[in-house]
């Protein structure tokens, strides 16, 4: 085992001392720098001319589009608010109109009721007056009849009791005295 490893590490030591670090082998630098410059230049050209402008345009288009959409959303919101305001306005005016109609209807109904009530009152009063007048007539008629009846009854009673006839005038005077 040991015999195997020792020559191996010896090989490595010899190799390392002969070549050194591969990075410090200056004979490879020209090639490396040449190819780095070439490949990096190609990469830079491809990126700056084609790839990055494309990505930039895509991103710019998207942000433009988003800004546009936001603008139109704002505009639509304003329009919706205006429509709502107009709707509320018309609602309010309709309500006021309805209130007006109700009020005027109520007033005209009130007036009608009042006039009918007045007419009914007048009728009732007139009827009451007529009835009162008749009552009064009947009453006076009845009262005057009572006098006549009373004098008749008194004349009859006197003639029955005394056999004498009494004049009407004397009866009336006697009754009025009583």
């Amino acid at each position: 085992m040991a015999a195997e490893t020792i020559p191996q590490s010896g090989d490595h030591a010899a190799e390392a001392s002969a070549v050194g670090l591969p990075q410090l082998d200056l004979s490879t630098w020209t090639s490396q720098i040449f190819w780095l410059a070439l490949t990096f230049a190609v990469l830079y050209f491809a990126l700056s001319r084609f790839i990055l402008p494309n990505l930039r345009n895509t991103l710019a288009n998207r942000s433009d589009r988003i800004a546009d959409d936001l603008d139109s959303a704002t505009r639509m919101k304003v329009e919706a608010e205006e429509a709502e305001k107009a709707f509320e306005e018309s609602l309010r005016s309709a309500r006021a109109k309805a209130a007006n109609v109700a009020e005027s209807t109520r007033q005209s109904l009130d007036a009608e009721i009042q006039s009918e009530l007045d007419a009914a009152d007048a009728d009732a009063e007139r009827e009451a007056d007529i009835a009162e007048a008749r009552i009064r007539e009947i009453k006076t008629a009845a009262l005057s009849n009572i006098d006549a009846v009373a004098s008749d009854v008194a004349g009859t009673i006197v003639s029955q009791l005394t056999g004498k006839t009494v004049t009407k005038a004397a009866l009336t005077a006697a009754l009025n005295k009583a």
Binding site: T28, S31, F34, W35, T39, L43
Partner: peptide, 15 residues
């Protein structure tokens, strides 16, 4: 001398 090397190959692959 400019040579084509394994380093050049992998630079090209990378790009």
């Amino acid at each position: 001398t400019v040579s084509w090397t394994n380093s050049s190959f992998w630079m090209v692959v990378s790009v």
